[in-house]
């Protein structure tokens, strides 16, 4: 599904392309430069640094071209939308971080309730469906699939 299909109109000010071009060009140069550290003891016609460098050349050239001749971009998010996206990343990042130290059940419970809230459900709906989702996932993975999930420290579940 392209962003175009979801209704966001392309905007003509393609500042994003210029920034992306600059970032990618820098990346290509840095990757090329870093490739000099790939030294192996073997004598081969082609070392481990050749292929990455070979990729960096067109990547860098095309990125520079994109910087000078940008194309169309979709509209970038602003205000509330941006906040909600940041919220999603914070919730998911936190979930990934706490999954092992808290254990699956508490981490997923908090994560799913917050997630459902982020998608505009009322607290009641979020709590009810968060709890059921957590339990279903736990039963599915732990028992139906037999995959151990991180346990709550000291409790063994």
């Amino acid at each position: 599904m392209t962003a175009e299909a979801s209704g966001a109109a392309p905007s003509t000010a393609a500042l994003g392309d210029r920034i992306a071009g600059a970032v990618l060009a820098l990346l290509a140069v840095a990757a090329w430069w870093h490739a000099q550290t790939f030294v192996s003891g073997f004598r081969q016609p082609v070392g481990p640094d050749l292929f990455p460098r070979l990729v960096c050349v067109p990547l860098g050239v095309l990125a520079l071209y994109l910087m000078c001749r940008p194309g169309l971009n979709q509209r970038w998010p602003r205000g509330v939308a941006l906040l909600r996206q940041a919220g999603l990343l914070v919730v998911l990042g936190g979930y990934a971080g706490f999954l092992e130290s808290w254990g699956f059940l508490p981490a997923t419970l908090v994560g799913s309730v917050l997630l459902i809230r982020l998608f505009d459900a009322a607290w009641r709906q979020a709590l009810v469906s968060g709890v059921s989702l957590t339990v279903i996932l736990y039963l599915l993975f732990e028992y139906a699939l037999g995959i151990p999930l991180p346990a709550v420290p000291g409790l063994g579940v």
Partner: peptide
């Protein structure tokens, strides 16, 4: 847009080299 497709391919190829080089064991990026 050919430019953008090629840039994307280049980025993917570069990301694909991350890790130990299978032929020599040299670590890359």
């Amino acid at each position: 847009s050919f430019t953008k497709s090629f840039i994307a391919a280049g980025l993917g190829l570069l990301l694909g080299t991350v890790g130990l080089d299978p032929a020599t064991g040299v670590s890359r990026y």
